[in-house]
Amino acid sequence: MKLSKLNAALIASALTLALAGNSYAAEIKLLNVSYDPTRELYQEYNTAFAKYWKAKTGDDVTVSQSHGGSGKQARSIIDGLDADVATLALAADIDALATKGNLIPANWQTKLKNNSSPYTSTIVLLVRKGNPKSIKDWDDLAKPGVAVITPNPKTSGGARWNYLAAWGYALDKNKGDQAKAQAFVGKLFANVPVLDSGARGSTVTFSERGIGDVLITWENEAYLVKKEFGDDKFDVVFPSQSILAEPPVAVVDKNVDKHGTRAVAQAYLEYLYTPEGQEIAAKNFYRPTDAKIAKKYEKRFPKLKLITIDKVFGGWTKTQKDHFADGGIFDQIYTKK
């Protein structure tokens, strides 16, 4: 039994948070509240940004990280977690900071380029080496005898992307027939033996516990698993189509004004859009939005047909209400046995 590297990363980031409190004077501190799979990305990015900021202004800046399920993180900020910046899994969670928490203006998404999403990602399938169940596309996930691992969309932001990617595929295949799409997604979820509460939990269930034939997950998480466990254990399968995930970032206005950290918080997010920031994102398996860097990494990120939340589902607010609210479509999939 070996110590899980992913678990170790979890513990390491908790330690970073503890140590960050132990710093000397004349130093700027930022708290970046993020979601589960960005641990490795921001670890690297924070070091790069600190170097950049030191060179530019002479100030030392220490960025602390907090990671967890995207929705839970948003709620923590609303309940008073002193985040300077929020970098979450979906726009709906940052929207909540505006609508429920009154911490940022409603038009936050217009403040930075690309809907405030410096990098994008998509949902892919991760299978065991050699693809023993020959899983090629979403259809194969609803077949009998295939065990699918995905977290619970009620508690995980990533899981909502998974669910919607499958739904979008079924919708296209059945020429927009919602009932058929629901039946398909229902069949898919009938193949799910474990519903973890977060994306990282599902990754561990699939990769370390050896449960399931296929993991539906973020592209970056799939590559990360391959990197951690070796290329000889898992294969990434790109389905015929998927969904464009735009994990957005925002400065938490009320908090930076209180801390006097607006300038550095703003710079922290803007640096994500520079070639250096984009390079780090690409290295950590997020799709860069900068055309030049994207070109450089085009082998790693094959072109896919990607649907968007806005076009197919009418935006996050509506999607949330139709699919994931209590009594919504997802709840109807799990009816009493």
């Binding site: 399920g69 929705g71 839970k72 709620r75 619970n152 009620k154 508690t155 799910v192 033996p193 474990v194 519903l195 973890d196 509460s197 949330q320 994931f324 609210a325 209590d326 799990y334 009493k336 046995k337």
Partner: peptide, 20 residues
Amino acid sequence: GNMPYISEIAPLLIVAKLEQ
């Protein structure tokens, strides 16, 4: 495993509701 109706504990449903 957190499967609805089988291995889903009440505290998890509380968390799911907080999530919304």
